[in-house]
Each structure stands twice: as structure tokens, then as C-alpha cells.
Amino acid sequence: MEKHIALPLTKELAETLHAGDTVYLTGTIYTSRDAGHKRMCEALERGEKLPFNPEDATIYYVGPTPAKPGQVIGSAGPTTSGRMDAYAPTLMSVGARGMIGKGARLPEVVEAMKKYKGVYFGAVGGAGALLARCIKKAELIAYEDLGAEALRRLYVENMPLVVIIDSEGRNLYEEGRSAYLMSVHSGRHLKKS
């Protein structure tokens, strides 16, 4: 199904999204990857606040290229989400709900998503030039010393995504692959008969 959704990603909204849905996302999201996640979780451990309000927030796993003069942001496709698996349940426990990335997640992340009603969206990995076009505003908000890994607040319009894992734990990586293999299998069967 194709859906246009406006952020923030509330619990109610999250529950309407299902693995395999094509989604066009509009609203404010936050960027963070390896080093930023480590710092945010260390801050939470010390009882400090995060650089942004995590409630119903969506985090984009991205380290963009530097913006050329006149650009809002450089190329900005997703990085491999699995490296954030150690931190994602902690961030969901304080209210963060949406994650945008690519690649497989650990079972403990999926369990946390079911518990906190999280959604894992896939952006097309390697399509950094295309995805940058959906980013209308970019503002550095913390950890500037991390360079490409610094925390940014982005405003995106109609960002093309696919729901990979939904809040019930359904997974497009598993379902999409087996659906394709079944279609090939049944196709072969038909040819034979």
C-alpha cells in the first residue's frame, strides 16, 4: 500500500503501518549514526537529556556528504542499521519510535519495537543523491565535532520509504524474499504442467 504520512510518528500512526507499505514521509526527523548513538546512550546513562525531544521522534541513520554551496545538504542515503542495534532499544525506551536505515536488525530490536510500537523504515541504500532532494531543511543541533556523524534536525518532504519491520514484528526481508521464491517456484511448476 502507498501512504503519505505526516510526522510526528505517534503510537496510533505507527500501528497503521505494515511491513511492505510504501510510505512518503513528511516532517521533522533527526540524523544520527554510530558515534552519535553511543554519545546519546552515554548521556541517558548519566541521567542527562538528549539534544532533542525523543518522544515520537524518528531517527535517520545517515552521515551525509558536506553540502556544496547553495545545497541544503549533500548526498544523504541510509547507513547500515545493524550497527545501531546496541543502542536502538534504549532510545525507544525514552520515546523514539521511527528508525530509517537499511539492512537487518537483531531480534532484541524487533522485540523492543513490539513493546514500544516502533517502526523500521528502509530508504534505498546508495541512493544518496535522490534522497537529498527530499530534505528541505538541515540544521546542526549537537556533536559538531563528529563531522558527518553530528546530530542534525532535518525537515523532509515526501521522503520515499518502505516499511521493513512494523510494530507487530512483521518483516519485509523475510516476507518479500519468501514471496518471490514462492512465485518463482509456482511459475516453474506451471511451466512444467
Binding site: 551525509p64 556528504t65 549533500g74 548526498s75 544523504a76 542515503g77 544518496g128 543523491a129 558527518a148
Partner: peptide, 12 residues
């Protein structure tokens, strides 16, 4: 887009 606008194909 990358060809036309001379921007990196991928951010990595």
C-alpha cells in the same frame, strides 16, 4: 541525478 548535478552518487 548524480551525473547531471555532479553530486556524489552515495553519501559513503
Amino acid at each position: 541525478i548524480a551525473d547531471r548535478e555532479q553530486v556524489p552518487i552515495c553519501q559513503d
